[in-house]
Design a protein around this nucleic acid. Structure first.
Length: 473
DNA sequence: CTATGGCACGGATT
DNA sequence: AATCCGTGCCATAG
């Protein structure tokens, strides 16, 4: 394996420890802000350029060749290649296309540049005069989810056009391809989508609108009983509406689906912007070993500026004192960052090797793993692992972005098998029956737990799956 | 009576 | 010490 050069480390002071711990928790994005702030405020800190591989533009180790372009030994298939990759190379490819085989386009920046122009092209013919200006402005203010990031009144103030015009343009945008794009909120997006569906002749369940308008919070917490009570309707009606909503509508127009709303108890929708770690194949070739990129928050290495150090010696007494402090702080900061990198590298290496099956073949092959186990293996304290895992996300070879904590999910494999069983069931199976079947396959879980897993996966209970079956028969 | 969800408890995990 | 997770019990819907 490609060895990372790690200078001597060992926490030295309690201050060091404390700062290491905080930094360890931070995802790249926030770490970058920290570093920039530090860099700006501390003259002793210096950013050094690093060598890049001429052909792939990746970071090179202190000596030697590019770990990616120089062919890796073939007998090391099990060991992932690990290297650091500066943040500006962030890959922001097509979102959760889900499909396995689809190859990534090499055009990294394409996706988010294109949504606005894509929409604009559709609505351009319907615009006249100032409306173009408005459309362009609105479209440049979409967030990653395809929702409008600014209030309409701001557009009015900024462009000096009547609100009615802005609203008209927004309506046009909302009806363009990712239906609901440019809405101010998920709720609004859902309503627009229902309108459009109705226009093309779909029937909307009676309760769908009221639920979206007034019951979003209950809906997201899956409190269907409460919904039924609130609207004085039978539970079955609520289930129908819910089924319809999750089948046909999506609250974040720029994302393909919202199927990943895990955690029934209220955990908000997962929004993973940029991963902290990328896992892919060498040369995108599934035959080749895995390559793990750990995203570094900035390009280059931080160090204490040697010039500054020299300058201090010949400074007058007064300045010396405060500059000395700067140097102390700077070197501490650098050490902490190295510590952070070192921990994450060792962690991810172990995790990738242990969860190889999951990475390559999917959820079914996730092996139960606890942070405690890993901490023993790495010889660090449990809380270190906890912190290192916290708030980080990983992009898998199939381009799905998952939280790093997913690698420590105790029941994902069972849930996955359960999903599979339900997917190709001949008739709707009750939770008890499913529990038995799981036991046959070696998963001992209580009936009650099957129900919970179902809920987590957003699968309706047996008697409500009947309808779907009947239709397809 | 059966299937399922809410609530709450206890042990494991963080 | 705080949180998460699997489970048992019980109420409720069908």
């Amino acid at each position: 394996m490609f060895q990372i050069h790690v200078p001597s480390l060992r926490p030295l002071t309690t201050a060091h420890l404390a700062q290491t711990m905080t930094l360890l928790c931070l995802p790249v994005g926030e770490l970058r802000q920290q570093i920039e702030a530090e860099l700006a405020s501390n003259p002793a800190l210096e950013l050094v350029e690093e060598r890049r591989c001429p052909s792939c533009h990746r970071l090179l180790p202190d000596q030697g060749h590019c770990p990616i372009c120089s062919a890796p030994a073939t007998d090391l298939m099990d060991e992932p290649i690990i290297y650091l990759s500066p943040r500006d190379e962030f890959y922001d490819g097509p979102r959760s296309s889900g499909g396995e085989g689809d190859l990534p386009e090499d055009n990294f920046s394409a996706t988010w540049e294109e949504l606005p122009t894509y929409v604009l092209r559709q609505i351009a013919p319907d615009l006249e005069g100032d409306e173009r200006k408005v459309a362009a402005y609105l479209l440049t203010n979409l967030d990653e989810d395809g929702l409008l990031a600014i209030p309409l009144v701001e557009v009015v103030r900024y462009l000096h056009v009547p609100l009615s015009m802005v609203e008209k343009v927004q309506r046009l945008i909302q009806h363009a391809d990712p239906v609901g794009v440019g809405s101010g909120s998920p709720r609004e997006a859902l309503l627009v989508q229902m309108d459009v569906l109705e226009e093309v002749g779909s029937t909307i369940p009676r309760l769908a609108r009221p639920i979206v308008i007034e019951g979003m919070d209950l809906l997201s917490r899956r409190l269907y009983g409460d919904l039924a009570r609130k609207f004085h309707a039978p539970l079955s009606q609520v289930h129908k509406a819910v089924q319809f909503i999750s089948d046909n509508l999506y609250p974040f127009p720029a994302r393909s689906h919202w199927g990943d709303v895990r955690q029934p108890s209220g955990a908000q929708l997962n929004v993973y912007h940029h991963p902290d770690i990328l896992i892919g194949y060498y040369n995108e070739d599934p035959e080749k070993p895995l390559v793990v990129e750990i995203i570094t928050p900035i390009a280059g290495t931080l160090r204490v500026n040697p010039m500054f150090r020299k300058a201090v010696q010949s400074a007058d007494e007064e300045m010396k004192e405060s500059w000395r402090e700067d140097i102390e702080k700077a070197s501490l900061f650098v050490k902490c960052l190295q510590q952070r990198n070192y921990t994450i590298q060792r962690l991810i290496q172990k995790v990738v090797m242990f969860q190889r099956g999951y990475i390559l073949q999917g959820e079914k092959y996730l092996r139960p793993l606890t942070r405690a186990q890993l901490s023993r293996e790495l010889g660090v304290h449990e809380s270190t692992i906890s912190r290192a895992v916290a708030n980080k996300t990983v992009q898998l070879p199939n381009r799905r972005i998952v939280p790093l904590s997913a690698f420590f999910d105790r029941s994902m494999n069972v849930r996955s098998v359960l999903k599979e069983m339900i997917a190709d069931e001949a008739r709707p199976l009750s939770d008890a029956e499913l529990a038995d079947m799981l036991a046959d396959r070696g998963f001992q879980v209580a009936r009650r737990t099957v129900a919970k897993y179902r809920a987590m996966e957003g699968i309706l209970p047996a008697h409500l799956r009947m309808g779907v079956m009947a239709k397809s028969l």
